[in-house]
Each structure stands twice: as structure tokens, then as C-alpha cells.
């Protein structure tokens, strides 16, 4: 018998001011607006200012989430930042954020699970709240992917964008909040989506820089196949665990990678497209930030209301996947 339930008490997101459209990209690489839209659904993405790092974006989203939740930074017990583009390898961006927020009582760590990072973090926070370990946890998905883009590679540079989304997780009344969790990984597919150099395997050298190994490498068709299958199967599993049917779900909020992945998965789930939230057209793929940004916008648009049942599903580098079924709580 579950004694405590964890849910989202408040949320916020931030995207940098600068917008990069497909027409801008046409001037940088051999591509076209129509080609990009047809294959990805992306029309524009936001790009961080030169002085902005991941913690700076995370800070703005975090402050909004704290305000929305009515919680002071000092009340936070833990901060988890899901990112593949931390300010530095170490210390963690969560520690940088802890200092910027003045969240002196909070433990802090980064979580690396690619584009599934925010949903992984939510699952970890859920366990920490329901076990009684902590009361208030700040989870943030934040990325400055523009810094690891090869701006000469038309296959990848059109896909990604920068941004941050944050949520305060805490206890909610019985039967609300997170109903079930489904997480997984397939390390054998790690090679399909990675940054090859810059770690202990291949430390930075003149050679790794010359070979463009500090950028995102992606095997598009392998990742596409994986994403289509896993988005459908992880969503299905998490609904089964929660004992809810696809008809009962009000909204599915998937990782915003590509509209083609989303519609192919929706078809497999036999779910009408209006039940699947999409905003990749305006932000591109913001990796760990995409699910919280999408959830914030869905709530702003009135699509996520008290008692509503939603599914969040992420998939990405690792390869990893994670899904959470929730019954939305608000006061």
C-alpha cells in the first residue's frame, strides 16, 4: 500500500531570446525550410547568447518553478539537473544552480540520461518523496546544445535547440501525482547517438578537435527506429502499470525530437494526434529540456488540468527511455 504520493507542485521554463529559423540555416548549410519541415516538423529553434551557459538558463526556469509552487529556494532538499551539456564536466551544473539559487539546504547532482533525462529525474524524485527521504525536490532539464553542434553538418545542426524547463516535486494527496514509472536502457545502442571525445576514452586533443569529435554524432535512421518503437512501448507499459487505458489518457507529452517520430508512434499506440502534444516546431529538439518545456506549455494552454491523466515519455542517448503516468494535482 503506497503511503505517500509525489507530484509536480510548480513549473517554469525558459528559452533564449535569439531565434534561429530554417531560413537562417539555409544561409549556413545546404538545406531548405521545406526539407527540414517535411522531415522534422521544426520551423525554428532558440539559441543561447554567447555568455549564457546551461546553469543560466536553468536558473530562470527554476525561479519560475519555485514561484509557481510557492516554495522558497531554502526549502529545497535536493536539486537534480538533467543535462548532456553541463557548464563544466565538474562541478555539476546542479551545484552551480544550488549556489545561484541560494538553496543552501539542498543536495545537488546532475543526471545523464540524454533526452530521457527529465523523466528519469522525475522518477528519481518520485522515489525520494514517496520514501519520505525528502519533501521538496527541484528537477531541471536544461541544455545548451548549440555549443556541441557541428554547424557545418546539415544532418544534425538543423535538429536541436537550447532551453530549460523546471519542476518542483513534492507530496500530493493520495491518488494524485505519479501513478507509475517505466524506465529502461539499451547500452548496446549507445554508439548511435554520442559525443565521441572529451571523456576518459578519448580526451580532448588537437586531433579530436580536428576530427569534429566534440560534436553530437547521430546515426539518424537507427535512432529513428528505436525512438518510434520505444515511445509506443514505454507509453503502453506505463499505462498498464497505472491501470489506465489509452482512452482514459487526456494527453501524451513525448520528448520533442521530430514530428515524424511522434506521429509514427501515435499510430502504433492507436491514439489520435490531438491527444499528443507537439511544440517541436518552435523549439527544435532541446533534449532533456523538451519534456518540461512541453508540459509547461500544455498546462498554459489549459490541456493539463486537475484530475487530468497524462503520460510523459522520453527517449534518447544511452540509449535510454523513461515514461511516467500522472494524475494532475493542483490546489
Amino acid at each position: 500500500m503506497q503511503m505517500k504520493y509525489a507530484g509536480i507542485l510548480g513549473m517554469g521554463f525558459y528559452v533564449p531570446e535569439k531565434v534561429l529559423t530554417n531560413y537562417d540555416l539555409e544561409k549556413m548549410v545546404e538545406t531548405s525550410h521545406d526539407w527540414i519541415v517535411e522531415r522534422t516538423g521544426i520551423k525554428e529553434r532558440h539559441i543561447a547568447a554567447p555568455e549564457q551557459a546551461t546553469s543560466g538558463q536553468a536558473l530562470i526556469a527554476a525561479r519560475k518553478a519555485l514561484e509557481d509552487a510557492g516554495i522558497e529556494a531554502e526549502q529545497l532538499d535536493c536539486i537534480i539537473v538533467a543535462t548532456e551539456t553541463p557548464d563544466t564536466k565538474f562541478p555539476s551544473t546542479a551545484c552551480v544552480l544550488q549556489d545561484l539559487l541560494g538553496a543552501k539546504a539542498a543536495a545537488a547532482f546532475d543526471l545523464s540520461a540524454g533526452c530521457s533525462g527529465f523523466v528519469y529525474s522525475l522518477s528519481v524524485a518520485n522515489s525520494m518523496i514517496t520514501s519520505g527521504l525528502y519533501k521538496h525536490i527541484l528537477i531541471v532539464g536544461a541544455e545548451t546544445l548549440s555549443r556541441i553542434m557541428n554547424w557545418k553538418d546539415r544532418n544534425t545542426c538543423v535538429l536541436f535547440g537550447d532551453g530549460a524547463g523546471a519542476a518542483v516535486v513534492g507530496e500530493v494527496p493520495e491518488g494524485y501525482g505519479i501513478l507509475s514509472v517505466e524506465m529502461g536502457a539499451d547500452g548496446s545502442g549507445g554508439k548511435f547517438l554520442q559525443m565521441p571525445a572529451g571523456g576518459s576514452r578519448k580526451p580532448a586533443s588537437h586531433e579530436t578537435v580536428d576530427n569534429n569529435e566534440h560534436y553530437i554524432f547521430m546515426d539518424g535512421s537507427e535512432v529513428f527506429k528505436f525512438a518510434v518503437k520505444i515511445m509506443a512501448s514505454a507509453s503502453k507499459k506505463v499505462m498498464d502499470k497505472a491501470g489506465i487505458s489509452i482512452e482514459e489518457v487526456d494527453l501524451i507529452i513525448p520528448h520533442q525530437a521530430n514530428t515524424r517520430i511522434i506521429s509514427a508512434s501515435a499510430k502504433r499506440l492507436h491514439v489520435p494526434e490531438e491527444k499528443v502534444f507537439v511544440n517541436v516546431d518552435r523549439y527544435g529538439n532541446t533534449s532533456a529540456a523538451s519534456v518540461p518545456i512541453a508540459l509547461c506549455e500544455a498546462r498554459q494552454q489549459g490541456l493539463v488540468k486537475k484530475d487530468g491523466k497524462i503520460v510523459l515519455v522520453g527517449f534518447g542517448a544511452g540509449l535510454t527511455w523513461a515514461a511516467v503516468a500522472m494524475k494532475w494535482w493542483s490546489k
Binding site: R39, F224, K225, V228
Partner: peptide, 11 residues
């Protein structure tokens, strides 16, 4: 078909 259609067809 485009390249992604081909991937979906293969699947």
C-alpha cells in the same frame, strides 16, 4: 517516399 518513409517501411 523520403528517407524516413523508407525507415518506416523497413520497420
Amino acid at each position: 517516399a523520403d528517407s524516413l518513409d523508407i525507415v518506416e517501411l523497413i520497420m
